[in-house]
């Protein structure tokens, strides 16, 4: 049994690592999306985390953990810095501004040869990231999201998402909440970037562009932005599907695109909302519960 498992793990460990890494990124985005922030800054945050942590381990000789922390903190600082002006923007403008941030970071990475290795990138990065690091990070994120959702903070965020006028009227400082979520999102994406860099032996400016940011948005949207498990489901699905469709490169792009469109059109709450619908239906005889109230009101 355990031999079977280790064999399975040996042949699939790469893909498992990738699933976990993408789940982590998906939770980073989930934080932003939970307050309606469609952020394209993920690539920029990951680049900050990756280059910073690689610099710490390779140039400064730091141990792995503080290097990852440094990368995450730098990305969080970047989020705080751009968040203050950018969060005042709405919808499309916010997206454009965060996209611009990712591009700026990419161009800096491309040109700051002494630290980032320029277009060639940095090679021979020690492989410090273990599967359990990634798994631990995902478990921590699940716990954080789960706990926050049951608190005053989660209620405030849910209100901001649906109606920020109501949130304000109930005493919620909308800007502060959105900023703290954006910074948290930067921290998680930065950590993911640091872990990714020490997983792949290599980082280059092409790793963290627009494509990365869009992919990261797709995970939670596909899986479900209202469900705790949504980001994992979306990330794993999006990671495994291309593997399953290896036989045709074109087909997999088309299929992914079609799938995203279908989900947005028919399941705006993401794949996990299927379960919610099914669970709510038997409850609808709660209409019977409603009856006494209406009667009371009319009496």
């Amino acid at each position: 049994m355990s031999a079977g498992f280790s064999q399975f793990f040996a042949s699939y460990s790469n893909i498992i690592d990738l699933c976990l890494l993408n789940s982590l990124i998906a939770y980073g985005l989930f934080l932003a999306l939970s307050a309606n922030m469609f952020s394209l800054a993920t690539g920029g945050f990951m680049a900050l985390g990756a280059y910073c942590s690689v610099y710490c381990t390779m140039e400064l000789g730091w141990p792995f953990a503080p290097a990852v922390l440094a990368g995450a903190l730098l990305a969080a600082a970047g989020a705080a810095l751009i968040g203050a002006p950018v969060l005042r923007l709405r919808g499309d403008y916010f997206m454009l501004a965060t996209f611009a941030f990712t591009e700026v970071i990419r161009v800096i990475a491309l040109n700051w040869d002494s630290v980032t290795g320029g277009a060639i990138g940095i090679v021979n990065i020690p492989r410090y990231t273990e599967t359990w690091h990634l798994a631990l990070a995902v478990v921590v994120m699940v716990y954080v999201v789960f706990t926050l959702r049951r608190s005053y903070f989660g209620r405030a965020i849910a209100a901001i998402k649906q109606d920020d006028v109501v949130a304000q009227s109930m005493g919620v400082n909308v800007f502060a909440h959105r900023l703290s979520l954006f910074v948290a999102s930067g921290f998680v994406c930065g950590a993911a970037g640091a872990l990714a860099a020490h997983l792949n032996f290599f980082v280059g400016p092409g790793d963290f562009g627009l494509l990365r940011s869009v992919d990261a948005l797709i995970y939670p949207i596909l899986g479900g932005v209202n469900s705790l498990a949504g980001p994992i489901v979306g990330a794993i699905f999006t990671t495994l599907l291309p593997e399953a469709l290896r036989f045709s490169n074109q087909l997999r792009e088309i299929l992914m695109g079609a799938l995203v469109v279908a989900i947005v059109l028919y399941l705006p709450g993401g794949a996990m909302s299927v379960f919610k619908l099914r669970r709510r239906r038997p409850q609808t005889p709660g209409g019977a519960k409603l009856a006494p109230a209406t009667k009371q009101a009319q009496s």
């Binding site: 903070f153 209620r155 703290s180």
Partner: peptide, 23 residues
């Protein structure tokens, strides 16, 4: 959201704001 969850939003100001304690 449930009626209770809606009303609970009104208690926002009454909570001590300490995110680490919440976590």
């Amino acid at each position: 959201q449930s009626v209770l969850a809606n009303v609970m939003l009104g208690t926002h100001l009454g909570h001590r704001k300490n995110i680490l304690a919440v976590l």
